[in-house]
Design a protein around this nucleic acid. Structure first.
Lengths: 212, 212
DNA sequence: CTGAGGAATGAACATTGTTCAAGCCCTTTT
DNA sequence: AAAAGGGCTTGAACAATGTTCATTCCTCAG
């Protein structure tokens, strides 16, 4: 049995951490395509082969970065949650919270463009399954929206609300995605922010009207 | 000067065509990552180096496929346009057309998943500009939406309508994107179709209400 | 018929991710 | 203290890939 001053398990953990950080910085600097084995090893100060002692392959490393990004995103959404006036009617409170959630999502994507993009750009090599903890993490985002829909569309049952939450999230995601894409022509961030707010609000109004 | 039975220019054109078709089939079979130089040459029945006599690199070839995909998409949208009852009020006609447009977009994406995805997955290597004909092609899609917004939000000026069209397109795009993504859990196509219809309709209603 | 010019070819190169035989270092044993 | 054992680390080597370019082959004017 080993009993060195620094246990093997801890050293492995440190290496994992250093590699994850290095990958994160590489993504921020050069996008997903910038994550290459040799620069990674260099940045983490380890041997080329050492990468493969803590990750089965680079895909797994990128997944680790994605997990961290999702955690950061959730923290950001929590921090950005607003507290409507206590005497506001529940409907109005839910509306405000929903708009604030969408804007917080946009803000995060804007502030951390590169790693946010990596979250969605990264496609696993053909035939590899997405780990279920990743699916679970994504579902949590949908559930945030779902929780706010109750007061707005009380006529819908839980299953329909879940679908609607997913749709709403997707719609906002699409706006953020194309809005931040330089490819389609630049758009001032402030303008994009207004557009997201406008569309979310309009959609809520429309949904409420139908539900009534 | 050359004057062979088959002029050089024509042979080049044929090769371009064969390579584009081969790339298209490869994308359909294995996604963007399936577009590799050697299989391409094999499929097109040409030498490896021949690829580089008609395309500067594989990126350009993929762009050629994308151009074709966009053309197909536009043709599909044209073919799917509906003609509302002639006595329907303009507002109602525009609503129906807008919903039909969104559904046609979804249908195309579903029917040609692989090449549709390729349209958006493909990122140019760092620092390369998107050709402006590509930007122009994308803008045409936005303008389709824009044209239908007139009767629905008459209070908005042209610039605001353009922004709104972009937002609407993005929202539908997001729904289609995440809806077809197996990653986030499967969703029956019929359900997705209903969801798109529901959200577009709700959004229109909400927008009209605000505009009134 | 011939040779010059240009076009096509695929071997060779550069850059990747990934593997694994070899060596190093730490622990245990004598 | 020395040596044997064994797991961990290492980076050279391999396979796959995009791209280039010296060579080859073809075409056709003379």
């Amino acid at each position: 049995m080993t009993r060195s001053a620094v246990p093997a398990a801890e050293r492995r953990g440190e290496l994992r951490e250093k590699l994850t950080q290095a990958a994160l910085r590489l993504i921020e600097a050069h996008g997903l395509a910038g994550v290459k084995a040799r620069p990674l090893a260099q940045a983490a100060g380890c041997a080329l082969g050492a990468i493969y002692t803590v990750f089965p392959d680079l895909d797994a490393l990128i997944l680790a970065v994605s997990a961290r990004t999702l955690a950061r995103l959730e923290a950001h959404l929590d921090a950005s949650a607003i507290q409507p006036a206590p005497d506001a009617p529940p409907r109005e409170a839910a509306r405000q919270k929903l708009v604030a959630l969408a804007l917080a999502y946009l803000d995060f994507a804007y502030a951390h463009r590169a790693i946010w993009r990596a979250l969605f750009e990264h496609r696993l090599s053909e035939g590899r399954a997405v780990p279920e903890w990743m699916v679970e993490n994504q579902s949590r985002l949908f559930r945030r929206v779902e929780a706010l829909l109750g007061p707005l569309v009380p006529r819908l049952d839980a299953a329909q609300r879940a679908l609607l939450a997913r749709s709403l999230f997707s719609a906002v995601h699409g706006q953020v995605l194309l809005g931040l894409e330089e490819k389609l022509g630049v758009m001032a961030f402030a303008t994009l922010r207004e557009e997201v707010e406008r569309l979310v609000f309009a959609t809520i109004r429309g949904l409420e009207k139908e539900d009534r």
